[in-house]
C-alpha cells in the first residue's frame, strides 16, 4: 500500500472548491490494481487517484458547474443542513469520549459536573495513579502480548490457507470454503457455554496461549476469506513464471505473492488488532479467574465492579484502555478506515 495511493478525502481537497465536487466521485470502479487489489469494498475512503484527475475534466463538467451555480441558493440551504448534521454528529460521537477524558483528569475533590465544564479547573493525575496501582500495567502488558502474538499467529495461519484455497483445486474445496464462511458468520458468543469445559479438558484454561489459540480459531475464517480475495486478483501466470524460474510453491509465495497481497495482510492485521484488543467475553471465560492474566477489558471491568462509584477512576481506566487503539487509529487513519471497511464487510 503506497501512501500516495490512498489519500483520505478531504486531505487533498481544498475547502471551497465546491462546484467541481462531482469529479471526486469518478474513482476507479475496477477490481483494483496489482499493487492494491480491492477485495470487496476496496476503495470507499474517497481516494482521489492522482492519475485519475485527468478524467475529472470530462466534457460534462463545465456544464454541470454552470447548472450548479444557477442552483446556488438551493446548495447553500443544503450546505447549512449538512453542516448542522456534522455538528450534531460530532457532538454525539465525540462528546462522551471527551467527557471521559475530562472526568479522568479531575482532582479528587472536584465533582463531575458541578460546575459543568469540559476542561477541569485543575488537572490531576491521581485517578491514573490509582488505576496503575490496581495493576493496569499488567493488563496493558497482557493485552499487548496477546494482541501481538495473536495477530501474528492469525496471519501466519490464514495466509497459507488462503493461498491453498486460491491456488489449489482439490476435492471438497468448495464445501470447505463454505464451512469456513459459516464459521465466520457464527458469533463467538455462542461457544462461551461449552468453552470452559473445552479449555479445561485441553489444559488451556488460565493460559495466554489458550486464549491466543482460541482467537486463531475464531478469527481465521474471516482472515482467510479476505486474503483469498486478494490472492484471487493476482494472475496465476505470475506463479507459473516463478515456477519456471525454479521456485517451489513456498518460495513463490514468499518471493512473488507476498508483496502484492501485503495490503490484504495489513487489513487483516488491523481488523484483528481491534478485535483482539477489545474482546471481552472469551478472554473473561478463559482468563477471568487469574488476576495476573487479565487483559485490558477484563481488568477495566473488574476494576469498575470494585470501585463502583468512583467515576474518576473508572474514567481513567477507560481512557488508558482505549488510548492505545485510538492512538494507532489516529496515526494510521487512512489504512484503518480501509481495514475496518473491508474487515467488517467480510468479517464477524
Amino acid at each position: 500500500m503506497t501512501p500516495d495511493e490512498n489519500t483520505p478525502d478531504g486531505e487533498n481537497r481544498r475547502p471551497g472548491d465546491g462546484v467541481d465536487g462531482t469529479g471526486a466521485r469518478r474513482r476507479r470502479m475496477d477490481g483494483g490494481t496489482p499493487e492494491e487489489p480491492a477485495a470487496g469494498a476496496g476503495r470507499t475512503d474517497g481516494a482521489t487517484n492522482p492519475s485519475g484527475s485527468a478524467t475529472d475534466g470530462l466534457p460534462g463538467a463545465p456544464l454541470e458547474a454552470a447548472r450548479d451555480a444557477l442552483a446556488g441558493t438551493d446548495f447553500r440551504a443544503l450546505d447549512a443542513v449538512v453542516y448542522g448534521l456534522y455538528g450534531v454528529a460530532m457532538l454525539f460521537f465525540a462528546f462522551p469520549v471527551l467527557w471521559i477524558v475530562s472526568a479522568s483528569l479531575r482532582p479528587e475533590g472536584e465533582l463531575l459536573s458541578l460546575p459543568f465544564r469540559l476542561v477541569p479547573g485543575e488537572v490531576s493525575l491521581s485517578a491514573y495513579r490509582q488505576v496503575f496501582r490496581e495493576g493496569m500495567l499488567t493488563w496493558l502488558f497482557n493485552s499487548t502480548v496477546i494482541t501481538v502474538v495473536g495477530v501474528g499467529s492469525i496471519v501466519a495461519v490464514s495466509v497459507p490457507a488462503a493461498y491453498a484455497f486460491s491456488r489449489f483445486r482439490f476435492r471438497g474445496r468448495r464445501q470447505l470454503l463454505g464451512l469456513v464462511l459459516l464459521f465466520q458468520m457464527i458469533s463467538s458468543v455462542i461457544i462461551i457455554v461449552p468453552l470452559y469445559s473445552v479449555m479445561t479438558s485441553l489444559n488451556l484454561i488460565d493460559t495466554r496461549v489458550g486464549l491466543i489459540l482460541l482467537y486463531v480459531g475464531i478469527q481465521t475464517p474471516f482472515s482467510i476469506w479476505l486474503l483469498k480475495g486478494y490472492f484471487d486478483t493476482i494472475p496465476e501466470e505470475l506463479d507459473y513464471a516463478a515456477r519456471i524460474d525454479g521456485c517451489n510453491r513456498l518460495q513463490t509465495l514468499r518471493h512473488v505473492l507476498l508483496r502484492p497481497i501485503a495490503p490484504g495482510i495489513a487489513v487483516v492485521a488491523i481488523f484483528n488488532t481491534v478485535f483482539l484488543w477489545s474482546e471481552f467475553v472469551l478472554a473473561y471465560t478463559v482468563l477471568g479467574s487469574e488476576r495476573s492474566l487479565y487483559t485490558i477489558s477484563i481488568g477495566v471491568y473488574e476494576f469498575q465492579s470494585q470501585f463502583g462509584n468512583d467515576w474518576r477512576a473508572i474514567a481513567a481506566a477507560s481512557v488508558v484502555g482505549m488510548l492505545p487503539l485510538v492512538t494507532v487509529f489516529v496515526a494510521l487513519q487512512r489504512y484503518f478506515v480501509k481495514g475496518l471497511i473491508e474487515g467488517s464487510l467480510k468479517g464477524q
Binding site: 449538512v82 489516529v330 475496518l340
Partner: peptide, 21 residues
C-alpha cells in the same frame, strides 16, 4: 466530500472513533 465542505473528515473520524472503543 463532493462539495468540499469543511468538517466531513472530522465527523467521520469521530464516528469511527466510537466504533473502535
Amino acid at each position: 466530500v463532493r462539495r468540499g465542505l469543511r468538517g466531513h473528515l472530522t465527523t467521520r473520524v469521530s464516528v469511527l472513533l466510537a466504533w473502535i472503543v
